[in-house]
Design a binder for these strands. Structure first.
Length: 179
DNA sequence: ACCCCGATCGTA
DNA sequence: ACGATCGGGGTT
């Protein structure tokens, strides 16, 4: 079952945890052939509102963060360190800037090392700025599926978010979740 | 127009 | 531990 807008339009911490065990699906055209890649989400991070100093929206509404103020379920794709892309899904209600970063996925038959980082998985799935703003609730090109059986909550570990030491007190928030 | 810095990754 | 590499956002 494809995750709909309602799924994403919830508390961001809940969405970040509920996404673990779900399958990120990427349909792309690769030289004539349609290719479908599915990977189980194993790590996420939450970025919530203007008060979260690690959230890009902490600087307010700007051209880049505009998408985070929009509808839940849309992709927020940006470039980090001038070289890599990061995939986020917008959460919460309109006008409240928040999103979940997909940090790692496991694809059957593919070395985990290829997809165990936000930049790596975007490279593998050919996700770039062209997909910024993409409605992931539509079930085309890029979307997320619910697993057959729900993932056991007990196996979820919470920790500090990666690479945001500049975020003062917010760097201590346990807003990173992984299996 | 310019400057600073980063939600990363591979190599050392 | 460090360099690659460039867009965004703030400042002049």
């Amino acid at each position: 079952m494809i995750l709909d807008q309602k799924f994403y339009q919830k508390d961001t911490l809940k969405v970040a945890q509920d996404l673990l065990g779900c399958f990120l699906v990427r349909k792309s055209a690769s030289r004539r052939r349609n290719k479908i890649i599915k990977g189980m989400i194993t790590e996420t991070e939450a970025y919530i509102g203007k008060d979260d100093l690690a959230c890009h929206a902490s600087k307010g509404r700007t051209p880049r963060t505009e998408i985070m103020y929009g509808k839940a379920g849309h992709a927020y794709v940006y470039i980090v360190y001038g070289m890599y892309h990061c995939l986020n899904i917008v959460t919460e209600k309109k006008h409240f800037p928040a999103a979940v970063l997909i940090r790692a996925i496991k694809i059957d038959g593919v070395d985990y090392q290829k997809t165990n980082g936000p930049g790596k998985l975007c490279k593998f799935l050919k996700i770039d700025r062209k997909l910024n703003g993409w409605d992931m609730a539509k079930g085309e090109r890029l979307y997320i599926e619910k697993p057959a059986q729900n993932f056991p909550k007990k196996n979820i570990v919470a920790g500090k978010r990666i690479g945001i030491d500049y975020a003062k007190h917010c760097k201590h928030y346990l807003w990173r979740f992984y299996i």
